[in-house]
Design a protein around this nucleic acid. Structure first.
Lengths: 220, 220
DNA sequence: CCCGGTTCGATTGTTGGACAATCGGCGGGC
DNA sequence: GCCCGCCGATTGTCCAACAATCGAACCGGG
């Protein structure tokens, strides 16, 4: 008998559908506004309708799809109110995390956060980096800050936002070069140790404002 | 035809079960740790198993029940790690709300918050007030702060915590008299205008510490 | 007496199929 | 031209079943 069971520890059918759909949404295979009809999902993933329903429910909790009673589910639309609301919650969670991190490390930024910024830097310095890699490294920075706050529950809450956040950060592509991205986050570390969590607030506000312009121009 | 349809606008079977169960949990009809067996719920509420399942799912999102894969659902236990995690997220949301409120009102506390504190005061000054009323008025104060932050999405996130918060606040009963409750929140308003959101942090820390002592003594 | 493996019942996860309720659009009637 | 009622499509709920999984009781050996 093999010591390690070859079975990949089946987590159930629902998570399967959830992650498949999530991947498709984040990769752009499904555009915001697209309808998600249960019958189609059933054929697509060869599962029962209840399974598809449950999956849609989970994705709604993640903010990636919007379901309206008796009216079906659609891929979440990226409009201005959503952007603002998302960044408000994000600010609340990240600022508290930063506060906790700085409080625990005597006002210094934790090592993993420095490492994450370095990785972002490295990715951005390669010639013509894939934007996807940039986005992932960028996520790593903010996630590192949240984790450094040492509150598993805040980290959980933030994790449920991450998909939705990515949806918007990819919209930064036309306006931010990898170089600006890297520069902004190097600056952030300095400012954090110098001015405290308020620096992170300014950083997030800048990001939101930029996404806002990106949405404005793409909506026109 | 009557102008107003007598039909109470059936919101569906799931919300029915959800609110019934929520009420029972918050009123103490169901104790933390009690098992919630799907079959029993089906008989109890005369609904399909999937409906009960969905309801449990929703209540899990609210933090009132814990479901473990293949192991069923139980009423959420009030242990120390949960208390800490809950108050961490709560602090993040309330502090950001307070910050936004103060920023918008030139450093002053918004009127609805004053009114909420007055209501709490009034309830606490009646002779032998029902603790339930005190808890509700107390909730009103913190909810008013969150609403004054003028971020619907933060308010939503906070709303999903409110049931869980109430579970712990009722535990304050043995340690806080209505008088202390009222005093603490009158002081909070002063401190908020004087020292900013940091005052709210101290307020929440005190509350958490008190609940902690209550849990300690009740666990012994 | 204690310990390990085994069996068994209870409960959950998933599936399939069925039906009523609801929504949006289409066409007919005024 | 506008309003109203019908119709297809889709969702919400229910019923019934089966496999997978877990916990606990059970049992035999040390």
């Amino acid at each position: 008998m093999p010591a390690s069971p070859p079975a990949p520890a089946d987590p159930g059918a629902v998570p399967e559908v959830v992650s498949a759909l999530r991947a498709r949404i984040l990769d752009g295979g499904l555009a915001p506004g697209d309808r998600l009809v249960e019958r189609v999902l059933v054929e697509e993933f060869d599962c029962a309708r209840h399974t598809a329903r449950m999956a849609l429910q989970m994705l709604q909790d993640e903010g990636l799809v919007a379901v309206q009673r008796n009216r079906g589910a659609t891929v979440a639309a990226l409009d201005m109110p959503r952007l603002q609301g998302l960044f408000e919650v994000r600010a609340a969670l990240e600022l508290e995390s930063a506060h906790r991190m700085l409080e625990r490390h005597d006002g210094r930024v934790a090592v993993p956060v420095h490492e994450a910024v370095s990785r972002l830097d490295a990715v951005c310095q390669t010639s013509r980096p894939a934007w996807r890699r940039v986005v992932e490294a960028h996520e790593g920075v903010h996630e590192a800050i949240v984790v450094a706050g040492e509150s598993p529950r805040i980290a959980d809450a933030y994790g449920r936002l991450s998909g939705e956040i990515r949806l918007f950060v990819v919209a930064l592509r036309p306006l931010w070069t990898p170089a600006t991205m890297a520069q902004h986050h190097r600056d952030l570390l300095d400012a954090l140790e110098r001015h405290g969590p308020a620096a992170l607030r300014r950083h997030l506000d800048e990001g939101e404002e930029t996404v806002r312009r990106a949405l404005d121009s793409s909506a026109s």
